[in-house]
């Protein structure tokens, strides 16, 4: 029964370590963290770990078509109980960059509650400190990260404090990109 597998063996401890990795990644854009302990059907280890750490029955999820499968839905249902929904209703989204878009379809927060916006867990081929230049909160001078594109992040930053936040995943590694980061090509 594949749905039952691939979860944390020791939930409180593994979730706590995973959260710290995600926190460091989000608080220090450009920082690449390694995680371990979960494997969902068709997802990277990192995306699986992030899902188990942040998603549950109270957080609707959108599955992009490149990762969506009956096996993944079963796994999510068993381990998180999260309802699968359309982009606009999702607190989290899972998938590859091309399949996740358009960004404007997700909740961006409201002026009174900018926190009510989606977090996108993006599967990428690899993560490295090259490509786009990042500045802003969490970055002492500048940082570098191979983002899938630049335009979308410029547009996202332009509407700060509204906007969506990103966690990029490749294999067992992840990096964060909050809406507050300024991205240059």
């Amino acid at each position: 029964m594949i749905a039952l597998e691939g979860g944390f063996a020791d939930v409180p401890v593994e979730a706590s370590r995973a959260f710290r990795a995600v926190l460091e990644a989000m608080a220090r854009p450009g920082r690449i963290e390694a995680v371990t302990g979960a494997q969902a059907p068709g997802l990277s280890v990192a995306a699986s770990v992030v899902a188990l750490t942040l998603i549950d029955g109270t957080t609707p999820v959108f599955l992009a078509e490149d990762v969506d499968s009956p096996a993944l839905r079963q796994w999510l249902a068993f381990h998180t109980g999260a309802p699968v929904v359309a982009r606009g209703a999702a607190m989290f989204a899972l998938g590859g960059w091309a399949a996740l878009g358009p960004l404007g379809a997700y909740a961006q927060g409201t002026p009174e509650y900018p926190d009510r916006s989606a977090t996108l867990i993006v599967e990428v081929q690899r993560l490295e400190n090259a490509g786009a230049k990042l500045t802003g909160p969490g970055i002492e001078r500048e940082a570098w990260l191979n983002l899938p594109e630049v335009e979308a992040f410029l547009a996202n930053r332009a509407q700060f404090p509204l906007g969506v936040d990103f966690i990029f995943c490749a294999g067992d590694r992840l990096a964060g990109l909050p809406r507050s980061t300024r991205v240059e090509g």
Partner: peptide, 11 residues
């Protein structure tokens, strides 16, 4: 944890 991450994203 979700609230902390949103807090980090909107300093």
């Amino acid at each position: 944890r979700r609230a902390i991450l949103k807090g980090i994203a909107i300093p």
